[in-house]
Design a protein around this nucleic acid. Structure first.
Length: 862
RNA sequence: GCGGGCGUGGCGGAACGGCAGACGCGCCGGGCUUAGAACCCGGUGGGCUCAACACCCGUGCAGGUUCAACUCCUGUCGCCCGCACCA
């Protein structure tokens, strides 16, 4: 209607855990349950009349779709991140740079490497790589999970405990993109909260890496954001999983080794949930190792404690109890020395004595860690002094010093970890990869995609304490030959016996790029045609993406990452997938809460004299808002509403409830309001007795003006997604134009043909079914969706006269009609000449008159 | 603890720094009806008042900026969401 070509598709993200769990529960194959669920859901959606382009529909489980999901994964497998160029490139270029001698691996030149060494050199660069590391293992779900899928030590889905186990898994090198994922957040029109969540998740922090020498052992490298406190590092801490802990056990006395072993085992066996629950009490064991503080030269103890996490930084810290709360607590608990090396700014009168003679205050014991910025003190040593320097400068100076000494460097660290992409589940995209008998992986060639899931009877997860993919049971599929699997004969002879990868991709895979497929869903040559991609994605990606806020660090981060890889490889033309993101609010429902804030199901509550009581106990309860849930029995079924009131009422009610982004409680009672409005629209247009059109004989100029205003308001409000106020505007118009029921001459009042046509077009995006019906009654054979949006005459938006408020000292004292074109000076003269205004001035002198033309006048008296 | 957001009638909610409460629900009164439903008309923030006029108070609370503050600033309380021993 506004001349834009709109892509409004719908499809189904159908691989993944929820679908598989349902299948396991019902013991029906997920291929069947998902197809059935899709059919049900599609039928439901179609009843809303949402104008989806169903010709573009697909599901992520379609082989024609997941073929390209696998293809994109292969592109990542064949790509590496060139840090110098800050972009992904094909592995072939990496090989060339090795061959040219521009690059070494493990200190070895390409020419000097064996085939195996070359292979592992390249593998260590791939964007999709097989990584051996500690992963989140969820026994209840029977699979490992990505960091983003673990919340407070429990699985995001289901809330089951998660433990850490070492495992070899397919990973994505998303960490290489940390800086760009962070930086480009600034360029997109996304909700502040979501950008903040991604920023926090990426977790950039600036600091330094510093190496500490250790007696009889490899040095320990730590990451710190406060290199300026190096002189205050009085001990060190290793994470229980740190490799040096093993070494410490070997060096320690048998008793000490036993103690260490017990501590490490206890830390490992505790699920992350417990580790957090007991978080505030610090535990740890002295390893017996002694490190040297490179700044002070002092020997300091090395402890192992679970408050240091292996997954962040280097898994080891220099502890500065004077200036870090956690280290302070630990030092207190184990009586380790605490020294002050930073003074609060205000205390350092005239600066701290540079000659290693701190002010008296610097010697006073700290009763709490001082972790703010301040002025360095007691920080002079071998070739460095930062005494008297403010924190920022002190940091820079220390970094300079460690770099000069060759014991460290400035470093930026991120919380973001590489993305674990393997799942030990049946219902996911198979990886297009096989292993030869030596355990080396080889890609399936692109021409042999898709790799289809084998049809199995038994898709149930294998009960096990260790991750075991159920696909392993499909031995006929797993054990095959290179030729059968589709490995390029140039890589492996076709008769080579190979084993297929039995892990599958997580549910996020398909949703990482589905929006691109919508541009060109039937393309058999490419994942998306270049022209279609350019046409629809121009302007910085998907123009408007409406979706829930719960995907902030999952889908929305993963999709950005895939998109950036595709962008680097020249497959798409925009650096970001979604230009504008909008989170719709949740529709909540009423529930009731007891005095202790526990919730009561709606059917357990009765109303008496406007107050609510719990049935049975008779205890008073208060009405509250809660998520819809089966247990509270407050779930609203849209089908029922549509059956009773129709789809237009349903749509209109949801839009009229309030701002789109807000969560709002469903109030069945309120549906009557929009239903009445639609009935009034119908009666305004149609004589209910005859079913004939009902048109006004003459155009009422006031109604005409209101109509222009309504069209303008609806257009503007729709544009800014303020559907609730657009509907209000239409209600106002219809109320103004409605004839009283008892009016004998139906040609009085109402709208003329032209007016009714324009109003019908205005209503159409909101109540399409009703609007189409009225449109056809108006004698049009074709759908109004092809009609242009009605035009607005700007002249009709202004009245000849407007009522303005007259204030005296900010309080409204009178209202006056003035010509709308009157200038500020004219209005001032008119107002001051008015008798009733003069009364309110009560003879006081006028000091100042503020005129806001068309709105109000404020008279300030002396 | 840190980050993001939100507090307006009985309820959902309107309001470029410029007439607080649009619109809807509910409620009250009236019309139509034997009666009810539906429909139509009018009223509806609180106080004061028999009532009207007038006046006063009102956007979580306390201050501030401004001729003017729901809107901007500072502090504070409450609620929701996210993160959380990240060195």
């Amino acid at each position: 209607m506004r001349g834009c070509n709109v892509l409004h598709p719908m499809g189904w993200d159908a691989f993944g855990l929820p679908a598989e769990q349902y299948a396991v529960q019902t013991n029906v194959h997920p291929a069947i349950t998902t197809r059935k669920a899709i059919d049900t859901f599609r039928a439901q959606l179609q009843r809303f009349g949402l104008s989806y382009d169903w010709s573009r529909e697909f599901a992520t489980i379609d082989p024609e779709f997941h073929r390209w999901t696998q293809w994109i994964w292969l592109r990542c497998y064949h790509a590496w991140y060139d840090r110098a160029a800050k972009k992904a490139k094909p592995v072939t270029e990496l090989v060339k740079s090795f061959e040219r001698g521009e690059r070494m691996h493990g200190g070895k030149a390409w020419a000097a490497m064996s085939a195996g060494e070359r292979r592992s050199a390249i593998d260590s660069y791939r964007l999709a790589y097989l990584g051996e590391q500690m992963v989140n293992w969820c026994p209840r779900l029977g699979t490992v999970l990505a960091n983003e899928e673990v919340i407070d030590g429990r699985s995001e889905r289901g809330g089951y405990p998660v433990t850490r186990v070492p495992l070899r898994q397919w990973m994505f090198r998303i960490t290489e993109y940390a800086e760009r994922l962070l930086e480009d957040l600034k360029s997109i029109d996304w909700p502040e909260s979501t950008r903040a969540q991604q920023t926090e998740w990426i977790g950039r922090s600036e600091g330094a890496e510093i190496r500490f020498e250790v007696n009889g052992c490899d040095p320990i490298t730590v990451f710190t954001t406060r290199p300026d406190t190096l002189f205050g590092a009085t001990y060190m801490v290793l994470a229980p999983e740190h490799p040096l802990v093993e070494r410490a056990m070997a060096l320690a006395s048998p008793a000490k080794a036993k103690e260490l072993r017990a501590y490490v085992a206890a830390a490992r066996n505790r699920a992350d949930v417990d580790r957090q629950a007991e978080s505030k009490t610090k535990t740890g064991v002295d390893t017996g190792l002694r490190a040297r503080n490179p700044a002070t030269g002092a020997d300091i103890p090395v402890w192992v404690a679970d408050y240091v996490l292996m997954g962040y930084g280097t898994g080891a810290i220099m502890a500065v109890p004077g200036h870090d709360e956690r280290d302070f607590e630990f030092a207190k608990a184990f009586s380790l020395p605490i020294v002050r090396v930073v003074m609060p700014r205000g205390d350092a009168k005239g600066g701290v004595d540079a000659a290693n003679e701190p002010l008296d205050a610097a010697n006073e014991p700290l009763d709490a860690a001082f972790s703010d910025d301040g002025i360095a003190c007691r920080s002079s040593g071998d070739g460095i002094s930062i005494d008297g320097l403010p924190t920022a400068q002190a940091k820079a100076r220390v970094i300079e010093w460690v770099e000069r000494r060759g014991i460290g460097r400035g470093r930026i660290n991120y919380k973001l970890r590489d993305w674990l992409f393997s799942r030990q589940r049946y219902w996911g995209e198979p990886f297009p990869i096989v292993f030869d008998e030596a355990g080396n992986h080889h890609p399936v060639s692109e021409s042999h995609l898709p790799v289809r899931l084998p049809e199995v009877e038994d898709f149930r997860p294998i009960e096990s304490e260790t991750p075991t993919p159920p696909l392993g049971k499909a031995t006929a599929w797993v054990l095959t030959t290179a030729g059968e699997a589709g490995v390029d004969p140039a890589i492996l002879p076709p008769s080579t016996r190979v084993r297929r990868e039995t892990n599958t991709m997580p549910g996020w895979a398909g949703s990482c790029w589905y929006y691109l497929r919508y541009c060109d869903p039937r393309n058999e040559q490419r994942f998306v045609g270049a022209d279609a991609e350019r046409y629809w994605m121009q302007g910085g990606g998907v123009d408007l993406y409406v979706g829930g806020a719960e995907h902030a660090v999952l889908h929305l981060l993963y999709a950005r990452f895939w998109h950036k890889v595709l962008y680097d490889l020249g497959e798409v033309t925009t650096p970001e997938p979604f230009r504008k993101l909008f989170h719709q609010g949740m529709i909540t429902s009423w529930a009731y809460s007891r005095a202790d804030r526990s919730l009561v199901a709606v059917d357990q509550v009765e109303e008496r004299h406007g107050a609510f009581f719990e049935k049975g106990s008779g205890e008073p309860v208060t009405q509250t808002v809660a998520k819809m849930s089966k247990s509270l029995r407050n779930v609203i079924n849209p089908e029922g509403v549509i059956a009773e009131y129709g789809a237009d009422t349903m749509r209109l009610y949801e839009m009229a409830m309030g701002p789109l982004e807000q969560s709002k409680p469903w109030n069945t009672r309120d549906i009557a309001g929009v239903f009445r409005f639609l009935q009034r629209v119908w009666r305004l247009a149609i004589d209910e007795r005859t079913g004939e059109l009902l048109l006004a004989a003459r155009e009422d100029p006031a109604i005409e003006r209101t109509l222009h205003r309504t069209i303008a308001r609806v257009a503007a409000d729709t544009e800014r997604l303020a559907f609730n106020t657009a509907i209000s505007a239409m209600i106002e118009l219809v109320n103004a134009a409605t004839r009283p029921t008892q009016m004998t001459d139906p040609t009085q009042g109402g709208l003329t043909r032209s007016q009714l046509e324009r109003f019908t077009l205005t209503l159409a995006p909101y109540a399409p079914h009703l609007a189409e019906e009225v449109w056809s009654k108006l004698g049009h054979a074709r759908s109004l969706s092809n009609e242009p949006w009605p035009t607005v005459d700007p002249a009709q938006l202004v009245d000849d006269e407007v009522e303005i408020a007259v204030q005296v000292l900010g309080r409204i004292k009178a209202r006056m009609l003035v010509p709308s074109k009157a200038s500020a000076a004219d209005i001032e003269a008119l107002v001051l000449a008015d008798e009733s205004v003069a009364q309110h001035l009560a003879g006081k002198p006028v000091r100042k008159v503020i005129v806001v033309p068309g709105r109000m006048v404020n008279i300030v008296t002396g």
